[in-house]
């Protein structure tokens, strides 16, 4: 066979150049998509809740339906979290982490078996994963670009926010204090005067840190008395009256009416 290498090599070269051109065009097409915000992501889980009314608290941050939320405002009463909350959270996190690791391992094991059984499909998936990685890179790029475009907006916000911080910020979160379910021992004796705004708003005495919203129910079958139009309930040496707070009507400990 009479081969002519000096003709063969240029042919390979031309084919190679054509191939490079095709790959480049394909990658440009893949990379060119603008894309919108990711539609995937963590979704809220739907299970777990049972019928309300079994002593579950209805009060919490999300109950406020506010566009800002000041966690420092009445935080202890709002969350009703005891001192052990932190350690409980830590142990929950640890448990969750352990479960997550376990699930990851299980998934890995399943994946291995699956890979063995379906090599071809796995390869396809790998190819798709590559594309996804590329798209993820784009998203990161977009996120970065977003962050860049935000700078001026955020800068203005912080300026304004600084000036208004002690003004009316977070006024719409109310005081969503948790009610104690059932009764609780009330330490000390506090007095009470039903805050009655009779004439103008300026005559109403209002404090920025309201006292506890009280209790959803009384700890006993109380002795009830009405003094000057105010209904009082007595349990032992403690007197209560009803009042409106962020969680609705509650029994608030008050001074003895007489």
């Amino acid at each position: 066979m009479n081969t002519k290498p000096y003709l063969f090599i240029p042919i390979i070269t031309v084919a190679f150049i054509f191939f490079i051109g095709t790959v480049h065009e394909a990658s440009a097409r893949l990379g060119g998509g603008g894309g919108r915000a990711s539609a995937s992501g963590a979704r809220a889980g739907g299970g777990g809740a049972r019928a309300a009314g079994g002593g579950f608290s209805r009060s919490g941050a999300a109950a406020s339906g506010s566009f800002s939320y000041s966690s420092s405002r009445g935080a202890a009463a709002r969350s009703g979290a005891p001192a052990a909350s932190a350690s409980r959270t830590a142990s929950r996190s640890q448990a969750a982490q352990t479960r997550a690791t376990g699930r990851a391992e299980t998934r890995e094991g399943r994946q291995e078996g699956y890979t063995e059984r379906t090599d071809i499909r796995q390869q396809e998936r790998t190819a798709r994963a590559g594309e996804r990685t590329e798209r993820a890179g784009e998203r990161t790029e977009r996120t970065q670009a977003r962050a860049d475009t935000r700078e001026s907006y955020a800068g203005r916000y912080y300026d304004d926010h600084y000036h208004d911080h002690y003004d009316d910020d977070d006024w719409d979160d109310g005081e969503v204090a948790a009610l104690a379910i059932g009764a609780a021992v009330v330490g000390g004796v506090v007095g009470y005067a039903a805050g009655q705004s009779t004439t103008t708003p300026s005559s109403t005495v209002v404090y920025s840190a309201p006292p506890s919203s009280g209790y959803a129910s009384l700890p006993c079958s109380p002795y009830t008395t009405v003094v000057q139009g105010v209904t009082y309930y007595q349990c032992g040496s403690t007197w209560y009256t009803q009042a409106y707070g962020g969680s609705g009507v509650s029994y608030v400990p008050v001074a003895a009416p007489y």
Partner: peptide, 10 residues
Amino acid sequence: IAFVAQLPKT
């Protein structure tokens, strides 16, 4: 009845 927040300082 009153609002809890109206309880005077006294």
